[in-house]
Simulated scan of single mutants.
Amino acid sequence: MRFEPEAKHGANNGLNVARDLLEPIKQEFPWISYGDLWTLAGVAAIQELGGPKIPWRPGRIDGFAAQCTPDGRLPDAAQGADHVRNIFYRMGFNDQEIVALVGAHALGRCHRDRSGFDGPWTFSPTSVTNEFYKLLLNEKWVWKKWDGPKQLEDKKTHSLMMLPTDYVLIQDKSFKKWVKAYAEDEQLWFKDFAAAVSTLFELGVPTQQFVSSEPWILKGSDEQ
Rank of each mutant, 00 (worst) to 15 (best):
84 V>H: 00
63 G>K: 14
83 H>P: 04
80 G>N: 13
99 V>H: 05
92 G>V: 11
88 F>T: 01
78 A>V: 02
63 G>D: 04
91 M>C: 04
98 I>Q: 03
82 D>A: 14
76 D>C: 12
71 D>C: 03
80 G>E: 13
71 D>W: 06
69 T>V: 09
89 Y>N: 12
94 N>I: 02
90 R>E: 08
74 L>A: 07
75 P>I: 15
67 Q>Y: 08
67 Q>L: 13
68 C>E: 11
84 V>K: 01
97 E>A: 14
77 A>Q: 08
89 Y>V: 03
98 I>A: 04
80 G>L: 06
92 G>L: 12
81 A>W: 06
66 A>R: 14
93 F>E: 00
67 Q>C: 06
68 C>L: 03
64 F>N: 01
71 D>L: 01
79 Q>P: 00
74 L>R: 09
74 L>M: 10
67 Q>H: 08
64 F>H: 05
66 A>Y: 12
92 G>S: 10
70 P>H: 09
69 T>C: 07
65 A>N: 02
94 N>G: 11
92 G>D: 07
78 A>W: 04
69 T>F: 15
76 D>H: 13
70 P>G: 07
94 N>A: 02
77 A>C: 05
87 I>R: 06
96 Q>F: 06
81 A>N: 02
66 A>F: 14
65 A>R: 11
73 R>Y: 07
81 A>I: 13
65 A>M: 10
63 G>F: 09
84 V>R: 02
82 D>C: 03
97 E>R: 12
84 V>M: 11
73 R>C: 00
97 E>Q: 15
83 H>L: 10
81 A>Y: 05
97 E>H: 10
87 I>H: 07
85 R>Y: 03
76 D>Q: 12
78 A>K: 10
99 V>P: 04
89 Y>H: 15
99 V>I: 13
98 I>K: 04
